[in-house]
Amino acid sequence: MDLAKLKAPSSEEEITKHWKYTDKVYVSVICTTYNQESYIRDAIESFLAQETEYRFEIVIHDDASTDGTRKIIEKYYDRFPSIISPVLQKENKHSQGQKISALAVSFSKGEYIAFCEGDDYWCDSKKLDKQYNALQENKNILLCVHDAFVINEKNEESDYKFPKRKYKKQIIPHREIFLEKGQFSPTASMMVHSSIFKPLPDFYYNTPVGDFFIEIMGGVNGVLYLPKKMSVYRRGSAGSWSVRVLKNVDRLTNHNLRMITSLDSVKKELDIKGSLINKKKRHNYLGLADIYWKKNKIESIKYFLLSLKAGLMKDHLRFFVDKIY
């Protein structure tokens, strides 16, 4: 695994000297963070280390962190004031029910949006350049993603893997987004045209996670996939989604229920086949069946049958064997 962390140049001039096109902001890097002082430096350094011909900005949204995250952001802003745009909230917006990703994007100016959460980072200094150029070669495609390394809380290679794909540049059909049980692509791999945020559909503000729904909106004409691993995803880091939700039964239950509701809203508001929506929902139904098995077997059976109705998959056999035998 090549997890070498990128190092930021010492000045703005060293970054902007690569910029050949400066008439507008071509890419806005969106970083959302909360209480990630142990990780945020790696993320910011990897943004600043990008070598591209196109002018970019870095919008860092801190949701009123209570640790040292804000001070770290402020120090970087002092050094790179024309590149970094800090959004430092005085009150936690997530706890108020606001959609942080949408809020952060509202401060951006770029033609394209590149995402990276505060506990992840990029490991290729040409990432932005490669993705922007690839999208320019495929003008009808709105979303570009790539592969990523995955590490655990000990900075060791994780057993978790993103979907295995052919090691070649390709356009993945839109329908494939709905077929994945887990995450279709790493959040830190996503570069999407800003037009999908203007405006965002109402349902987006009530979704339990934003990345999947950005993928289905941005991937309507297919998803441009680059095989190289250009980012690092920390799984199980303090404050991460995998810790907050996957390891909390009540939150995981709520997540699955909200996903089902959100998918129903997608079916109503976007021109997407109901069969695709159902293929994604079956994973949430089976997740609920698994959760309810120990505390309410009737509810468990109900969700198991709903998942079967939405389409058969290998996980059904695994569930049956684990629970019955």
Rank of each mutant, 00 (worst) to 15 (best):
D2Q: 12
D2R: 04
D2M: 05
L6T: 06
P9D: 13
E13R: 08
E14F: 02
I15P: 08
I15S: 02
W19Y: 15
W19L: 03
Y21N: 10
Y21I: 01
T22K: 14
K24T: 01
V27H: 00
C31V: 12
C31W: 08
C31A: 08
Y34N: 06
N35G: 07
Y39E: 03
Y39R: 08
R41S: 11
D42N: 15
A43V: 05
A43D: 11
E45K: 03
F47P: 09
F47D: 06
L48H: 14
I58F: 07
I60E: 03
I60Q: 10
H61A: 12
D63Q: 11
A64I: 04
A64K: 10
G68A: 01
T69D: 02
T69L: 03
R70V: 15
Y77R: 13
Y77V: 06
F80W: 08
F80T: 12
P81Q: 10
I84Q: 03
K90Y: 11
Q96D: 07
G97A: 06
G97C: 11
G97D: 10
Q98M: 09
Q98K: 10
A102C: 10
A104V: 03
V105W: 00
K109M: 00
K109H: 00
Y112H: 07
I113T: 02
I113D: 01
F115G: 11
F115A: 07
C116L: 10
S125R: 12
L128A: 04
D129R: 12
K130A: 05
L135I: 09
Q136T: 11
E137A: 13
D147R: 06
D147W: 14
F149P: 01
V150M: 05
N155F: 09
S158M: 04
D159T: 12
K161C: 09
Y167W: 07
K168I: 02
I172F: 05
P173V: 01
R175D: 13
E176A: 14
G182L: 08
F184A: 00
S185P: 06
S185H: 06
P186K: 01
P186R: 02
T187N: 14
A188Q: 05
S189M: 11
M191W: 00
V192G: 14
P199Y: 05
D202Q: 15
Y204E: 15
Y205L: 06
P208M: 03
V209D: 11
G210Q: 13
G210S: 13
I214W: 04
I216R: 01
V223H: 13
P227H: 03
P227Y: 04
K228C: 00
V232H: 04
V232W: 07
R234C: 03
R234T: 12
R234Y: 10
W241S: 05
V243T: 14
V245W: 02
L246K: 11
N248V: 13
V249T: 05
L252F: 08
N256T: 03
L257F: 12
T261M: 06
V266H: 04
E269T: 08
N278V: 00
K279A: 03
K279E: 12
K280T: 00
K280E: 00
H283L: 09
Y285G: 12
G287P: 02
A289V: 07
D290V: 00
Y292L: 12
W293K: 09
K294Y: 09
K295F: 01
N296S: 14
K297R: 13
I298G: 04
S300C: 07
L305P: 04
L306V: 05
S307K: 02
K309A: 05
K309N: 15
L312E: 15
H316F: 11
R318P: 03
R318L: 13
F320N: 04
